[in-house]
Design a binder for these strands. Structure first.
Lengths: 191, 191
DNA sequence: TATAATCGACAATGTGGTTGTCTATATAGT
DNA sequence: ACTATATAGACAACCACATTGTCGATTATA
């Protein structure tokens, strides 16, 4: 059906594909006993994810335009978790909910592309403090601006009060813990 | 840019949101020129993702209780994309935005755990039609029920009107295409 | 009929996660 | 002070899941 060519994982995903609206699958094979006007239950999680995707994709498209083409969604998230005060691989792993080895690998990548640097801890010879470089901070500053602009665009679309209500509602149904998303193998499964 | 403003939603009375968690990094080191009470721009995407996570995690916890402990988030999504009419690996790959090889592997998994089965196409000897088994359909039926229950719980928390407003708002800022999430290597990057 | 396109399979590869093991360093208990 | 235990980070092996490239079989088309 969708004759559009695929875009592999690299590069910033488009999201503006405007493909087919209706997928071929019935809402629910045999649960037509719900209130008629309600949307299918699985629309809500999908919309939440799509909304997330839209924001992240547009962020990185704009970030690429502003001189940060190599930053991946994961990187920005990790740099947020590193913070301006810096941290260690083990601590970062705990914060993100991944092993310290995985955190270390991501730090390797960020170091290689120049967004973090490793230093030593004067008080603990074991620890190596990971700190954002100037470039790393710059990417976060620009991300903040871009997110603000995206939010403003949503405010134009939805109205400021509706957007605030949306944010408020999301806070009510989500855990207060910000990081610790456990993104790793969460979506996939045992093959 | 995939979000064009349509019509500003008729305002629902906003309720006061709770305090922001404030992770380790400053919102924006030099963007204090926004309205002061606004949340940091990156909270919105994170909340969207967390909300998605909450729904999917609870779905699968309940699904496991109801006799489907092996279904992973990806599986349910893929089965929705397969649909009751069945499809082929190549078509499924296009629909999901992944390669036909990746789609084929996921189909292998679903076949192994008994949720789909492969048949032949009488009209085209190349194609192998993938269809949901009875067990596969059962998992989708239960998923629909569980999603409905989860939605009802959110309606209790937020109020039915607020929830409808949330869904409506999400529709305004997301592309109409349901599937085609390009989940694959999207989050990660080049190491 | 010759040529092109498509399906499904196989192989090789890359990314990103895991566990396990190792050394060096810090810290707590005796 | 000395020893036991815990922790940081590095290295290796492995696994999960995606990618591209290729290939034979089959269908569609010029």
């Amino acid at each position: 059906m969708s004759t559009e060519p695929r875009h592999p994982g690299s590069g910033t995903a488009p999201t503006s594909g405007r493909a087919k609206p209706s997928p071929d699958v019935e809402t629910s094979p045999s649960t037509g006993d719900r209130a008629a006007a309600d949307p299918p239950g699985f629309e809500l999680p999908l919309r939440l994810f799509l909304a997330f995707r839209v924001l992240i994709d547009e962020l990185h498209a704009e970030l690429a335009r502003q001189g940060h083409p190599d930053v991946r969604p994961m990187h920005g998230f990790v740099m947020q978790a590193i913070g301006t005060r810096g941290t260690t691989a083990a601590e970062l792993g705990r914060r993100l909910g991944v092993s310290k080895q995985a955190a270390g690998k991501t730090i390797d990548t960020l170091e290689r592309i120049g967004y973090v640097e490793r230093g030593t801890d004067a008080n603990d010879a074991r620890r190596k403090i990971v700190r954002l470089t100037e470039r790393g901070v710059d990417s976060l500053v620009r991300s903040a601006h871009i997110f603000d602009n995206l939010r403003a665009r949503w405010a134009d679309t939805l109205g400021e009060d509706r957007l605030r209500a949306l944010e408020s509602d999301l806070r009510l149904v989500t855990p207060p813990d910000f990081f610790h998303l456990d993104v790793p193998g969460w979506f996939g499964g045992y093959q």
